[in-house]
Amino acid sequence: MATTVNSEQGSSVNRRGFLNFLLGITGLGWLASILYPVLKYLNPPELPEANISSLKVGKVDDIPYNSGQIIKFGRTPVLLIRDSEGTFKALHGVCTHLDCIVQYKPDKELVWCACHGGSYDTDGNNLSGPPPRPLEKFAVNIRDGELYVAKGEA
């Protein structure tokens, strides 16, 4: 009799030990499965902030006269132009005809869409070809020699 009681007690101790072990391990695993995403979340992404209403493009002096470049303004392509007199202009970079990305043609000093040859002047007015509407303008501001593009007309 006594021996059976002993073994029962022993197995219940064993069982309790295993249960506590299981609780500890799974508890730790659970903690890890919460901490992992939280820690990942706390680690700031490479792009340190959301693209917002204004975008810093770079130094004014680095941009040559009579040139154009497409910049990513959030998820909108913007064509930044510096005309032959040095004035900056920014236009929505998507052709109003069939949504192609437009480019600046230095030889004609015009904005030009390669898809169907629509052309705009540097203020975005549609000049020739299929575009039905002018290009939307973006504001360009200069602060301390740095160039910023912002939503809305300057």
């Binding site: 309790r16 609780l23 695993g29």
Partner: peptide, 20 residues
């Protein structure tokens, strides 16, 4: 899936603990 597995095990363990 992994975290659900862990939580399920934890839940079972906790349930058994309560019973114990």
């Amino acid at each position: 899936g992994i975290s659900t597995l862990i939580i399920t095990l934890l839940i079972i363990a906790l349930y058994m603990k309560i019973k114990a």
